[in-house]
């Protein structure tokens, strides 16, 4: 099927089989390999991207479902001039990543939530961290990172690019 994926504001005209899952289309057809596959069953969240502003598991969506819908991946998280997103800074500062395999998923999950509500409370942050798996960090640094990013986001000093 002929479709156009609109990822990080760029158009990718593709000819894909209907069965192709979004994650594979992003990784192999668009060359955006920052989105990772850790389980292909919706559990780990490494594949999380924003589809129409909503954080979803890209292993549980078909590429053909996303024809013409705006998609945001980790490659599009930084600002136009390459200015890091507050989440990217915060993950580094709080050591929210070790091997980095789960990281894009956590980033996009949190980016979607921050876009919906920049005033993330502790319980919302906890809910986000509970949504994905990380085998390296033990999660607490990820929680701190998202909390810090939410704070920075609110303080508004850190640039204000919305993720979708």
């Amino acid at each position: 099927m002929k479709i156009t994926l609109t990822v990080n504001d760029a158009a990718y005209p593709l000819d894909v089989e209907p069965r192709r899952v979004l994650a594979d289309a992003l990784r192999d057809d668009c060359g955006l390999t920052g989105t990772h596959l850790g389980c292909e069953q919706g559990v780990c969240g490494a594949c999380t991207v924003l589809v129409d502003g909503e954080a979803v598991r890209s292993c549980l969506m078909l590429a053909v479902q996303c024809d013409g819908v705006p998609i945001r991946t980790v490659e599009g998280l930084a600002g136009p001039g390459g200015e890091p997103h507050p989440l990217q800074r915060a993950f580094s500062a709080e050591r929210g990543l070790q091997c980095g395999f789960c990281t894009p998923g956590f980033l996009m999950l949190a980016a979607g939530a921050l876009d919906h509500d920049p005033r993330l409370g502790d319980e919302e942050v906890a809910d986000l961290v509970r949504s994905n798996l990380c085998r390296c960090t033990g999660y607490e640094p990820i929680r701190r990172a998202i909390t810090r990013a939410a704070r920075d986001h609110q303080n508004g000093q850190e640039g204000r690019h919305r993720s979708v």
Binding site: T33, T35, H36, T73, L97, G100, F101, P104
Partner: peptide
């Protein structure tokens, strides 16, 4: 904070499947 961070946080990491 770490040299690994920039590429891993921007989707520029390179794992074998990439």
């Amino acid at each position: 904070l770490r040299r690994e961070d920039e590429r891993l946080l921007t989707g520029a990491g390179r794992f074998v499947a990439d």
